[in-house]
Computed example of a mutant assay.
Amino acid sequence: MGTAGAGAEGTAGERRQLINVAYRLLGSLTEAEDAVQDAYARWYGLPRSRQEEILSPGAWLTTVTSRICLDLLGSARARRERYVGAWLPEPLPDRTEWGPSGGSGPAYRADPADQIVLDESVAMAFLVVLESMTPAERVAIVLHDVFRYPFAEIADVLHRTPAACKQLAASARKRVSAAPAPTPATSRADVVRQVKEAWEDKDIAALVALLNPAAVMTADGGGMAGTIPRPLKGGTRIAQYMVAMADKAPGLELLERSVNGAPGLVARRAGIVMTVASFDFSDGRVTRIWVVRNPEKLRPWAEAGRPVAG
């Protein structure tokens, strides 16, 4: 469990784990940072005698962070209603695309995005499914299925019985299992590359061939960047829209990049990341495209777009 009396030395190392938990719960790196900072503020606000009574500061911080996230999720519906257009999780770059890391000093800038473990639990498709769950379901499945917390500890977060938490996770799991099985990474990269080439060539026929006829494109501009106001449905309509956008955006550079650990595309102009696109696939064709253009959600990409010194 841990040792009693742990202070700064015993809690500082928990930050990476807490950021990983909070990002999966909230789908927002900015909100995850705030939640973790709030949890640490509460820890350091405890009397020293109370800190010494806590056998596992890490477990305490995880519980508090999860409760903060639960409160945020509870108010998220109202905030989503005020949001301009569709709301999508914040996309994350691969840590290998960051500037110099793993050291200290002026050349090193520790960023929360660099602390996220990129696996299937941060895939855009999974995060979007999490958005369809109740806050309690989301907390239950993330803590149990992703981070392997026992239901007895999750019960303390949700203020429910372990049996009720187990039922919440089972309900959430059904939503996840309803999603299509993931396509192998190599196949995904091949399709994304073909989409990029067809987009650059403004080849509508080639794009239509790569898109499922029932494909859906959802875009998030947050009212700060122009984009489609609601999901666009149909492979042909999406292909036509993509080519129309290419005509209106001369000088746009398309790059194949890892987005939340999966093959994706980044559109850059004059070295500035303007758009990040994630994809989902079925039978070798694109079924979903998630496009993030809200500049506030592209903050990690500003640093990731800089060349690595070497």
Rank of each mutant, 00 (worst) to 15 (best):
P180W: 06
D283W: 01
A78C: 06
E200Q: 12
R109W: 09
C69H: 04
G2K: 13
R79F: 06
V292T: 04
V292W: 01
T65F: 00
R293V: 01
E31P: 09
Q194S: 15
E9C: 13
L207Q: 07
V273N: 02
H159N: 10
L254R: 12
L127W: 04
S171Q: 08
E197P: 03
T183C: 10
A169P: 02
H159Q: 10
I116C: 01
I228H: 14
P112L: 05
K196W: 02
M124R: 02
A164C: 00
L29T: 04
R79Q: 12
Q17A: 15
K202L: 07
P135M: 05
L70M: 10
M133Q: 12
W60I: 01
D71I: 02
S28Y: 05
S75D: 13
M1S: 14
L143F: 07
M274D: 09
Y241M: 13
G7A: 13
W301N: 03
A164G: 00
A86K: 09
L55A: 13
K297M: 08
G58F: 01
G103C: 07
T227N: 15
N260S: 11
D156M: 10
I19G: 05
R15D: 01
P182Q: 08
S177T: 15
P182Y: 06
R95E: 12
G105F: 08
G102R: 03
E137R: 08
A110E: 13
W199K: 11
Q51K: 08
A6P: 07
G235P: 10
A4V: 11
A41N: 08
V128N: 06
Q115R: 14
L26D: 00
L72A: 15
G284V: 06
V292L: 03
A225K: 12
R138T: 04
R288Q: 12
A179N: 08
R148Y: 11
D94L: 07
K196L: 10
L298N: 02
L143S: 05
T287P: 08
S56H: 11
L265H: 01
Q17W: 15
D203H: 06
M217V: 10
A8P: 14
T287K: 11
P182I: 04
E253R: 15
A12R: 13
A12Y: 06
P57D: 01
A262M: 09
Y83D: 02
T96Q: 14
G284C: 06
S49Y: 11
Q167L: 01
E153P: 06
Q51D: 01
